[in-house]
């Protein structure tokens, strides 16, 4: 199941685990990324809490936790190669895996068609 948020995160959900990243649209707006701050594995986050921070040459931007849950893995490769997010935002540039507190929460999020309509 692929879902999207209004804050330009995507979630690929399988068996109660969501892999989370930022959308291509967001990565293009942010520009070339030079640094990413990822959460510690084991961190428990509420929906909307800051989960990660990405930095371009010019500015820092927060990435929010799209749903409540526990961080069970992070994409360590992004530390040495944050530009991976620009090259493959919806693939190898994923940020973290989240064990969802309640899988049913995901149904309220947008599907791909709704997200693409939002960003025009």
């Amino acid at each position: 199941m692929l879902k999207f948020t209004e804050d330009h995160e995507w979630l690929s959900i399988k068996g109660g685990i969501a892999t989370v990243g930022i959308t291509r649209y967001a990565s293009e707006l942010l520009g070339d990324l030079v640094f990413v701050d990822l959460p510690a594995v084991g961190t428990v986050l509420e929906k909307g809490e800051t989960a990660a921070t990405v930095e371009s040459v010019k500015a820092a931007s927060d990435v929010y936790c799209p749903l409540a849950g526990e961080i069970i893995a992070v994409n360590e490769f992004l530390h040495s190669d944050p530009a991976m997010i620009n090259r493959s935002p919806e693939g190898e540039g994923w940020f973290f895996r989240l064990r969802l507190a309640n899988v049913d929460d995901a149904t309220a999020l947008m599907d791909e068609a709704a997200y693409l309509a939002l960003v025009g």
């Binding site: 520009g31 070339d32 030079v34 371009s56 040459v57 010019k58």
Partner: peptide, 12 residues
Amino acid sequence: PVQFADGVLKEH
């Protein structure tokens, strides 16, 4: 213009 199509990094 804050940037052009190349983006800040490549323009720099």
